[in-house]
Simulated scan of single mutants.
Amino acid sequence: MKKIYKIFVINPGSTSTKIALFENDKELYSKNVTHDAEKLKEFPEISDQFDYRKETILGELAKNNISLGGTNAFVGRGGGLVGLEGGTYTINEVLLHHARIGFTVKHPATLGSQLAKDFAATYGGESFVVNPPDVDELELVARVSGFSDVARESRGHPLNQKEVGIRYAAELGKRYEELNLVISHIGGGVSVTAHKKGRMVDSNDVINGDGPMAPTRAGSIPASAIIKLCYSGKFTEKEMYDRVTKDGGLVDHLGTSDVREIKERIKNGDTYAKLIYDAMIYQISKNIGSYATVLKGEVDAILLTGGIANDAYLVQQITESVKYIAPVKVYAGEFEMEALASGAIRVLTGQEQPKIYTGKPAWSGFGNK
């Protein structure tokens, strides 16, 4: 008989924490546990929220008569770590320390590894993070920019992208590490990535203004125009940063990031809304083409994922633009919770070896200075 593994998954967000209990790949229970936003403001640092979030989660489990006894693995979202290879990492003391202090970034996701480690200590079982946001597998040549003191960085959607890559490979009876894929996550942010034999060798930097525009992000803007805006006196540094990272793209043009609203406006004859939405689709398609060149045109498939991949119009338009490169397959939505559970299961069943977090970044400079 196939052994049953019990996995508890923890994915903290800004004002809520997604939790789910799995038996192997079957989800038994899931809940998006909400937290009092005003209460969260009382904590000076994100890690200070630990006890409050833990008690809220345990209270929700108790209300639903969910026991964590006998759980084989607790898996946290992860974050705040140095750049690392993709994979499933055992939560050791170095990883835990970096998560607590938010070594590279301050984000609620850093609480995932802290909670997973604590629950494992209480209930038994192992604790892991899987393909955290810090995955950095860029090839050296992909890091070079036109400034010697600015290197391109890997910031995208590794957890969801690698999960759909693994799923697609399994459908072919192959391993993710055997394929060359271009995968685009299309959500509030848009990432397009070249996956070469299991490694994310090049990708646009979703956070720092690179790649296609997105519902909430500006994407690539001519640098000279940015410089003029910065010195125009019209914007503070924070306002410019926000415009690039969370108020750009569809929000800047149309005042909303809600694609459903935009589609309704287009349906009612809003020609400007159609232009902007088509421009986003155009830019995504163009980026997919550019990342195909990273793989020298040897692309097994183009995979589209993320919430906006549910839009049939967007999928059709992108497919028409890029189908000459490779077959297009859609995995609409996000598979973060399933991906976290699957990573733990691969380790527990011996399909993968757990990786050890050393705290040393995968890349630390070009060595020229």
Rank of each mutant, 00 (worst) to 15 (best):
Y168S: 05
V294H: 12
V105L: 14
R77M: 02
A120P: 04
G146F: 05
L254C: 05
L68G: 07
R100L: 09
V94D: 01
L159C: 00
M1N: 14
G233Y: 10
V9D: 06
L115Q: 06
N160C: 01
I262G: 06
A99P: 04
G156D: 01
G249A: 10
L115C: 00
A273T: 00
K355H: 10
R77A: 06
T34Q: 15
M200Y: 01
M200V: 04
L159D: 01
A332I: 04
M337G: 01
F43V: 06
V129P: 00
L314I: 12
K6W: 11
A218D: 07
L304W: 13
T90P: 04
S232E: 10
L275I: 06
S184V: 10
R346N: 05
S232K: 08
A116N: 02
L181E: 03
I302T: 12
M213P: 00
K228L: 15
D300M: 11
L68Y: 04
H98T: 00
L229H: 10
A194G: 02
M213I: 08
G83I: 04
A279S: 10
Q353H: 12
A116M: 03
M1Q: 11
D48N: 08
I46S: 00
A273F: 04
I318L: 09
V299C: 14
A301V: 14
F119E: 02
P12V: 08
K355M: 13
D202Y: 09
V347P: 03
N208K: 09
E42Y: 11
H157L: 07
N160I: 07
K323P: 14
G76W: 02
F147L: 15
V330F: 02
K267R: 05
K26S: 15
T236R: 10
E42Q: 12
Q316M: 15
L348R: 01
I186Q: 14
T245E: 03
Y272G: 01
T90K: 12
S113K: 05
M200Q: 03
F103T: 02
V94E: 01
Y168A: 03
V135R: 03
E23D: 14
M213R: 07
L61A: 02
R155S: 10
K286I: 14
Q351I: 14
T88H: 05
